[in-house]
């Protein structure tokens, strides 16, 4: 906990009010506490990763931040404004967008139409002609030629780009990406990572990425929040996290007393 506070103090000192301030967010499902009092902050412009084994509570945390699940306790503030208790669509219209780990595009509609729906969100609806907006977004993620294709024929990699396009269309200040590299072949990972990097730069986005594979993170994020069993166990740079004893424990198993360590 004190590590987090130290790093956060640095970050806050540099940029004023943090873009995202998560404080003591907790969620229980019956007997299982999925997230135990998570606290961290994000400064505007960062790319931060959330790391942890399966079942660590990462996606639950995302759902808590984006309003798909209501926290039992704690607060989530975007730019100082409380998000807890708001419906997901309202959080999106405040500037916090997310992608899903399992993409569920709108079937029976084209790629363009899928993005067009997000262009109709109140936050962005009146800024420009929606169809033009949608085409621009498709341009940015590299799906321009496939605008008229039905989503059912899209390969998996393009579906992931579409996910990001949909989130991007709502003009977010903070973008939450849930395992964007899951299921991608090695040749698809790098282009997607480059896309994320480019968006971070060009759109001045703050990005929070969930991944459970270390490698994808390394080049992408500047800071990592590690989770296990619903708790934040470490915060630091990628290099620091990799060497952190509790992180190693979470991933590899106990180093003492069980003798079965690899």
């Amino acid at each position: 906990m004190s590590e987090t506070a130290a790093v956060d103090a640095q970050v806050r000192g540099a940029a004023g009010v943090p873009l995202l301030a998560v404080d003591g967010v907790r969620k229980r499902f019956g007997g299982l506490t999925a997230v135990k009092g998570a606290s961290f902050t994000l400064a505007a412009g960062e790319i931060v990763g959330i790391l942890g084994p399966n079942g660590a509570g990462k996606t639950t945390l995302f759902n808590l931040l984006t309003g798909f699940i209501a926290p039992d306790a704690g607060s989530v503030k975007l730019d100082g404004h409380e998000l807890k208790g708001l419906a997901p669509y309202r959080i999106v219209n405040r500037g916090l967008a997310r992608t899903f780990q399992l993409t569920r595009p709108f079937l029976g509609m084209s790629v363009l139409e899928n993005v067009l729906v997000a262009c109709l969100a109140p936050r962005v609806r009146h800024r420009m002609a929606s169809e033009e907006h949608a085409r621009r977004i498709l341009d940015q993620v590299g799906l321009r030629e496939k605008a008229a294709s039905p989503v059912e024929v899209l390969p998996y990699g393009d579906l992931r780009r579409l996910e990001i396009a949909r989130a991007l269309a709502t003009d977010p200040r903070l973008l939450l990406l849930d395992e964007p590299f899951a299921g991608l072949g090695s040749s698809e990972i790098e282009p997607l990572a480059n896309l994320i990097k480019r968006l971070h730069r060009e759109e001045n986005l703050t990005i929070l990425i969930i991944e459970h594979k270390l490698r994808e993170f390394m080049a992408l994020v500047s800071r990592v929040i590690a989770m296990d069993f619903g708790e934040i166990i470490a915060v630091g740079t990628p290099a620091e996290i990799v060497r952190h004893p509790r992180v190693i424990e979470a991933y590899i198993g106990r180093t003492e007393g069980d003798g079965a360590a690899a």
Binding site: A87, V92, T99, R104, P105, A118, R123, V124
Partner: peptide
């Protein structure tokens, strides 16, 4: 198509 995705697209 999908209500959750719609919410994530900012639609009420």
């Amino acid at each position: 198509g999908d209500e959750a995705t719609c919410q994530a697209a900012g639609i009420n």
